[in-house]
C-alpha cells in the first residue's frame, strides 16, 4: 500500500499528469479541483502529503495551506506548491502560510518524485 498524496489543481490535465507521475512511482493519489474541494476531502481523509496549485477558484493555494495547518487530521503533513508563479514574494507568502516546498511549473516528473521522496522519507 503506497503513501497517499493529494493533488489540488483547477487544471484537470495538470492533475492528470501529477497523478500519473505519482502512481507510476507507487503512490496513491486523491484529487481535488480547487482549495475548497481539497479542504472538504481532507476533513475526513488522512493523507501523507499535499501538492497544491497557487491560483485556484473558490479557495487558492495559500488559503488551502492555512486551512490544512489549522486542521487536526493533516496538520503536520508536507505541503508543496506546484505553480507557475516564481516571484519571491509569493514564495515567501507560501512559506509563511506553512508550505514545505515550492515547485515552479513546468516541472520534470523526476523532480517531483525526488521532492516527494525527500519529504516522505
Amino acid at each position: 500500500m503506497g503513501k497517499l498524496i493529494m493533488t489540488a489543481d483547477d487544471s484537470a490535465s495538470v492533475r492528470q499528469m501529477v497523478a500519473f507521475t505519482l502512481k507510476q512511482n507507487g503512490y496513491e493519489v486523491i484529487e481535488a479541483v480547487d482549495g475548497q474541494d481539497a479542504l472538504t476531502k481532507l476533513g475526513s481523509k488522512k493523507v501523507d502529503m499535499l501538492l497544491t496549485d497557487l491560483n485556484m477558484p473558490k479557495l487558492d493555494g495559500i488559503g488551502l495551506i492555512k486551512g490544512v495547518r489549522a486542521s487536526a487530521l493533516n496538520k503536520f503533513i508536507p505541503i508543496v506548491m506546484l505553480t507557475t508563479e516564481s516571484q519571491d514574494s509569493k514564495k515567501s507568502e507560501g512559506k509563511s502560510a506553512g508550505a514545505t516546498g515550492w515547485i515552479v511549473k513546468p516541472f520534470k516528473p523526476e523532480q517531483l518524485i525526488a521532492v516527494v521522496k525527500k519529504l516522505l522519507g
Binding site: K91, T100, F107, Q111, K118
Partner: peptide, 23 residues
C-alpha cells in the same frame, strides 16, 4: 519596482533543479 525580496532560504535546490525550493 517590486516588493523587496523576502529571503526564502532554499534547501538543496540544486539537488532538485532551479525551479524547486524546499523551505
Amino acid at each position: 519596482k517590486v516588493q523587496a525580496k523576502t529571503t526564502v532560504p532554499p534547501v538543496n535546490d540544486t539537488e532538485f533543479g532551479d525551479n524547486v525550493d524546499l523551505f
